[in-house]
């Protein structure tokens, strides 16, 4: 067993520097690497390019990094629900590249899987395709989208072991598996780090080969963005 376990979030984030490009798993606030983000806030690393489906909310998730002006550029598909983000974007302080959600996922997966680029129909004929190579296959037009290049991928899983194997829960899975192994270093934080050998190999979502560092997060707030419930009849 190749040991990927680190003993603290500080150790997990060793090598993080200003002006780097990071990937963050999560959809809304679900499945975000809360502990890695909290540590980045403490480190106050600046000039970051962040690849993440969303940009958090004003006081949680990547919103915390935005608040300290740590982010230079966001690459996302949807950035509503964040007033500070909108302010920084409209004032030009923050560079923003909005791309289709499926394209975001596939540009991560391409980096993970060793593809330099992929063709997708998404965005053809829109400003998203401006300046990009397009090509026709079987009478339909596609846009060439390149694999991401990132320094660190920060992902969050439900359970993991020291070998780096990961299991996700519910829709907290989202972009996390696609970002594992898609950056130079993948840092996985888990709710529960279990002894090696206790996870069923049949049930592993991401094999440890895609993960360089793993640690158990100190605490998880797991904030709900839109609480919707029904009454019992």
């Amino acid at each position: 067993m190749i040991n990927k376990k680190v003993h603290s979030v500080q150790e997990a984030l060793q090598g993080v520097q200003d002006n780097m490009t990071f990937m963050f798993g999560g959809f809304g606030l679900s499945g975000i690497p809360e502990n890695s983000i909290a540590e980045l806030v403490k480190m106050n690393t600046k000039g970051l390019t962040c690849i993440s489906n969303n940009a958090g909310v004003d006081n949680f998730g990547l919103g915390l990094l935005l608040h300290q002006n740590q982010i230079k550029k966001m690459i996302s598909s949807y950035v509503g629900e964040n007033a500070e983000f909108e302010r920084q974007m409209l004032s030009g302080e923050l560079e923003v590249e909005l791309i289709p959600q499926g394209t975001l996922a596939e540009r991560c997966r391409a980096a993970q899987a060793g593809f330099p680029a992929i063709y997708t129909p998404a965005g053809y004929g829109t400003e998203v395709a401006d300046g990009k190579e397009t090509r026709e296959f079987d009478g339909k037009m596609y846009v060439l989208e390149h694999a991401f290049k990132a320094d660190f991928a920060f992902v969050k899983a439900w359970k993991g072991d020291a070998a780096g194997n990961l299991i996700f829960k519910g829709t907290a899975r989202n972009f996390n598996p696609n970002m594992c192994g898609a950056a130079k270093i993948t840092v996985a934080e888990v709710e529960e780090l279990v002894p090696v050998g206790t996870l069923d190999p049949n049930q592993i979502h991401i094999p440890g080969i895609f993960v360089q560092r793993i640690f158990q997060g100190e605490k998880y707030e797991k904030r709900i963005e839109q609480l919707t419930v029904r009454k019992r009849e």
Partner: peptide, 25 residues
């Protein structure tokens, strides 16, 4: 409600028998 089970509108939801979860790709 479970913070790990939401829809694309970030609303808490439930799943029905036969449901499945998967990654974004």
């Amino acid at each position: 409600e479970d913070a790990d089970i939401i829809n694309a509108g970030k609303q808490t939801i439930t799943t029905l028998p036969g449901a499945s979860f998967f990654d974004s790709a």
